[in-house]
């Protein structure tokens, strides 16, 4: 039995009465008051998530940019200091080792924020390909990360607006942090990168402004409503970026691991595609359920905003068009669903 890791905010979660569960080797809050009220807080006001379990990897040295350009799918050349980019770490088949955000801290100096479950595989993958003059350091333990998301998040934190995928040094209530304009909920918001020792103070500051503490349960339903893929569910080393609908983060005019394979898949057209769907009958799709017409559910849950079952799943490419009827095998019962354009939830529709 492996000991679970704890974030710098563990004591805070216990004090708040969170329900703690094992997640990717960490003991993490799945909910405080409940998934549904937490979800709604983020859609209507502001919620805070402890995402300190995510990994931070620093890459610097005179050839840092060249190194990353060769291993990441998006075009690192388009970054400048203070800007960030969603990108993929791809394998030789165009499969997805991880999805991550790369931040350009300065010339030839980058921070990668990666999925908790992939931190070690990512670091091993990068070390195998490391070039001279590009140094790699896993600095995950030095930092806490607090996501504050929702239409009132900036107002509550007293932060100015800024373009998405930018970042700058800042502070909340006197606690210094890096304010990243990124997130995983589909709402405006920030992810605050903070020295681990200061993380509890920052968390207290955030909550004192009326931001609702939210667990991983709401994080999952929020990201699913806006169809952000979850690595390990919807994307993996065995699924390629084109079939997953992530061609937009693959700069196929650059040369990176698996680029040739991805160009071929794009040229030929993928055999299957990751489709979003909404249930038309009362039923909640879950990961692993067969799709009768072909494929299976990779993520499924109840949408608190639509108050229906929703999901993502790979289907034969010809069935991925919005409006196509699907049948989900819910523990032996066939239930009707319909392919929906991504994202499933947008504020205008609600």
């Amino acid at each position: 039995m492996q000991t679970l890791l704890r974030t710098p905010l563990y004591e805070r979660h216990v004090a708040l009465g969170a329900r703690l569960v094992p997640f990717a080797g960490w003991e993490m809050p799945v909910q405080y008051e409940g998934v549904i009220p937490e979800h709604r807080a983020v859609r209507t006001d502001a919620g805070a998530f402890d995402v300190s379990h995510m990994g931070e990897v620093l890459v610097d040295g005179p050839r840092a940019r060249e190194f990353l350009q060769g291993v990441l799918s998006n075009d690192v050349e388009r970054l400048e200091p203070g800007h960030a980019q969603y990108t993929l770490l791809t394998n030789e088949h165009g499969g997805i080792v991880d999805d991550l955000i790369v931040y350009e801290l300065g010339p030839e100096r980058y921070l990668l924020i990666v999925n908790a479950a992939n931190r070690e595989p990512d670091v091993a993958w990068l070390r195998d390909r490391e070039v001279e003059s590009a140094e790699l350091r896993d600095v995950s333990e030095d930092y806490g990360l607090i996501a504050v998301q929702g239409p009132r998040s900036l107002e509550r934190l007293g932060l100015p607006e800024a373009p998405p995928f930018t970042f700058a040094d800042g502070e909340v209530g006197g606690v210094a942090c890096v304010v990243n304009r990124t997130g995983y909920t589909g709402e405006v918001g920030v992810e605050l990168l903070v020295e681990a020792a200061d993380a509890p103070r920052l968390w207290d500051e955030v909550l004192s402004r009326g931001v609702v503490p939210c667990g991983l349960g709401a994080r999952d339903t929020l990201r699913l409503e806006v169809c952000y893929p979850l690595h390990g569910n919807d994307i993996s080393p065995d699924t390629d970026a084109i079939s997953a609908g992530l061609g937009w983060v693959c700069a196929l005019d650059t040369d990176f691991t698996g680029a040739d394979e991805l160009r071929q898949i794009k040229e030929a057209g993928p055999e299957r595609r990751l489709a979003a769907f909404v249930m038309e009958e009362a039923a909640i799709p879950r990961q692993g359920m067969p799709i009768v017409e072909g494929g299976e559910v990779t993520s499924g849950s109840h949408s608190p905003m639509l108050e229906r079952g929703i999901g993502l799943g790979y289907v034969p490419a010809e069935l991925a068009q919005p409006g196509t009827g699907l049948t989900i095998d819910v523990r032996g019962r066939h239930r009707r669903a319909r392919v929906h354009k991504k994202p499933i939830y947008t504020r205008e529709e609600s």
Partner: peptide, 30 residues
């Protein structure tokens, strides 16, 4: 946690003590 789905048995169905006759689901669990 908050239930979001109840999968009931058919009316007229036979239920047997100690065996499953329905399902309830929250966001996270069945």
């Amino acid at each position: 946690g908050e239930l979001v789905h109840f999968e009931p048995p058919e009316e007229g169905a036979t239920v047997t003590k100690d065996q499953a006759y329905a399902e309830v689901e929250s966001v996270k669990a069945v």
